[in-house]
Design a protein around this nucleic acid. Structure first.
Lengths: 175, 175, 175, 175
DNA sequence: GATGAATGAGGTTTCATTCAT
DNA sequence: AATGAATGAAACCTCATTCAT
């Protein structure tokens, strides 16, 4: 049922109604509410579902990658692919719950993972010294927006982001 | 009245109601509808208002800047400041009309402007050869998201973006 | 509209729905909600309406009565008549808001009035010394229940109550 | 299970849901429905349970009382205590089934009992000649309301009622 | 031109009841 | 006999929009 909801959100964004989800899942509307006591709860669950997918991918493909220098590349590309797979969901998540950021355990896990990849990249020379997890966060946030609004080729955005994180000297000293 | 609406959107995001706008502007709700036949029209007008503000700024401060190498920096920072001034508006625009991108004349003007700044930067050596207007578009889109969600220090995001647009060699040849 | 609602409650009790009220008043349901932002608000207003009616009656017929000894009699009978006129309302009031008692100004006014009548009755010898406003309160509460449930002839109940309030010696010393 | 339900109603009034009862009784909801095919049936059963308790008390303590003059006093006080023990139940009963009055056998038994006590009181001189079972009914109904709404000290109400039933001359001849 | 009361479709949520396991 | 997931009618409430004054 969560799967169904996620697909529906992916396609129609925030405008999907509980009744629609029920019909698509071929259950009564009460059943939807039995599992998710609130529309917001459903959206949150869909968000969690997506975070989990990203986390799985990140652990299997990025951490386990043979070449330590491409970890971040894989991560951003992987996230991009997940986000691009169901575009509408991002919008639903954002309007149903302030921001589209993970919270709780997902967040902690994701941050730990990004930190590790950052360190490896630094060791491999593909990441600048002053790059932080927050930088990655902002980039992912931006990436999500680029994908959601379709404002350009998100793979290009990822490459630009990697360039930014790699660039020789730290960014301008001010600030 | 548009000003009032914009402030309201800035503060409360997409959840402001037409009646609220009317009260804040101290007019009847019918009057709001006289000027903006639809809620969406009002949001669009507020968006236009903001684009115009950005355009004004861009022409006066970026094009007219003495140092041609800092044009893009000024532009992105200027845009960031406008977006940060009324954060909620971005969300309202996005949920009321697919994306938060300008359209029509604003779009054309903004694109021309970005192209000019890109050229100047290239001439000054602060912008890589393969940078395009679309790159800037995506970056602005990402910047808007970073600001809207407050996912980090947007000035840092701007610096990263400039690094990306500057980085010596073109990004990895793949893709 | 309030009148209409009151009649509806009188007839159908707590089961009347907002849509019913709207239809009976020949307005849209939104209009009902414009005047009474909540179902409970509507019930409360109906209650106030009834309290006001009682108050008016009490002031005009009880306080202004020529024979000071019959004040309480008139009061209880008058209240009984008002309550009997729209029986269902009492139930609606009670289930929508804890008890069916007045609050705020109505309460104060009613208490002052009862006190006055009690004093006059005492002077006329038709009310025992230890009778209090709270006694009257309880009696009215009981009267309301008798009428609402139709458990007997409420006029008989009123006579019994007056006998209780009149009875020569104070009630049994215990308790 | 009935006990559990009764306690729940006592505490929460008419708002207890079938699922709540099931959980509190530590059975599945289906089991509740096996025993009580309808919510109303459950409430009725709880009401019966209470009537039975009152009946037991009345037979043991009132009919068997040494002093025949205090029968009614004991009865009303006893009923008051039972009603006060689980206040919420009265409300539940009333909104689930028109009035809170007993029906069928309970009713007959209770009426017979009240009649007997009335007769004894009359013989003992503590009850006026024209008092009827219906009078007692109304008084109990009022008492229930006083207790349910907490509109005053119900023991005082009982004393007033006894005074009313005792008072020397029959109430005013009119009516 | 301005006003704001009225509108009502549409959305969320609840809960008594059913029935396959 | 017990279970509890599923059901869906029905209730409440919101808010963009209209239109008579």
């Amino acid at each position: 049922m969560l799967e169904v909801a996620r697909e529906l959100f992916a396609e129609l964004g925030d405008q999907v109604q509980m009744a629609e989800v029920a019909k698509a899942a071929d259950v009564g509307i009460g059943t939807v509410y039995r599992h998710f006591p609130t529309r917001q709860a459903l959206v949150e669950a869909a968000a969690q579902h997506r975070f989990a997918e990203i986390l799985d991918f990140a652990r299997e493909r990025c951490l386990a990658a043979p070449d330590p220098g491409v970890g971040l590349d894989l991560l951003l590309t992987g996230i991009g692919e997940v986000l691009a797979k169901d575009r509408g969901l991002s919008g639903a998540i954002e309007s149903a719950m302030g921001s589209a950021e993970p919270s709780g355990d997902s967040r902690t896990a994701l941050e730990g993972l990004a930190g590790t990849l950052l360190d490896r990249g630094r060791a491999a020379g593909s990441v600048r010294d002053d790059a932080t997890v927050t930088d990655v966060y902002m980039i992912v946030c931006g990436l999500a927006a680029v994908i959601r609004t379709g404002s350009g080729d998100w793979r290009r955005f990822v490459r630009l982001a990697l360039d930014a994180l790699r660039s020789g000297r730290p960014s301008s000293p001010t600030g």
